[in-house]
Every structure is written in C-alpha cells, then in structure tokens.
C-alpha cells in the first residue's frame, strides 16, 4: 500500500497510489494512514483518484481512519472513481463525508475558506 502525502499550512492531502483498497490491504491502509496523520493539520483530504476498486473492507478502513482522527479533525474525500462512488452511495457512507471532485478542488476550497 503506497501513499503519497503533501502537507500545506491548513490541509494535508494523502494520495493513494495503489489502484485498489480491498480485503488484502485494508488493515495496512488503516495503519499507514494512522501513522501519517498522527501529526499535522486538522483537515486531511484523501485523494482516491487512482483507486479503481474499493470493497467493504476498504470502506470500513476509510471510516476507521475518519474515527481515528477524532472529533477535532476531519477526513474529507476527493476524486472518487465510478465503482468507488457506487460503494459509498449504496452504503450511504457518502453522507458522512465531504466529497470533492478532485484533490485540487478540495485544496483550493481550503484556500478560499
């Protein structure tokens, strides 16, 4: 599981380089995200633009990362591909995240806020 991090003054973006987050990698994803986000800005944007497939284990891991950040920090999502978007929509987990079309939009949103 490869993750690429970019930290700006008020937002950290984490891009998933792998093309899937599934049962074989969900735990690794969660642990790496926990390490990466241990310190840094309150706002974390997870860039999923390269991720073509997410199963329920991967979805559970993303929700777990959101919870690990705690009540004072926030996990937002960006760049959902069609199958990933379908999994979020059908499980209604799209309603507990702010979802941006792309990580660039998410970051510019922070600059203007």
């Amino acid at each position: 599981m490869q993750l690429q991090t970019q930290t700006r003054p008020k937002v950290m973006s984490v891009s998933v380089i792998d093309d899937r987050i599934d049962a074989a990698t969900a735990i690794q994803f969660k642990e790496k995200m926990r390490d990466i986000t241990q310190a840094g800005p309150d706002r974390v944007v997870l860039d999923l633009a390269r991720v073509q497939f997410l199963d329920s284990s991967g979805l559970g891991a993303i929700v777990a990362v959101k919870k690990l950040l705690g009540p004072d920090r926030v996990l937002e999502l960006a760049g959902l591909t069609p199958t990933v978007e379908k999994v979020f929509r059908l499980t209604r987990m799209d309603s507990i995240f702010t979802i941006h079309p792309s990580v660039e939009v998410a970051v510019s949103h922070a600059a203007s806020a």
């Binding site: 559970g60 929700v63 959101k66 999994v87 059908l90 499980t91």
Partner: peptide
C-alpha cells in the same frame, strides 16, 4: 459510525 456490515447489503 459503522466500520463493517456492508457486504451483504451490497
């Protein structure tokens, strides 16, 4: 917030 229980629904 739930971290599982999505599989059979899907």
């Amino acid at each position: 917030q739930p971290e599982g229980g999505f599989g059979w629904h899907l």
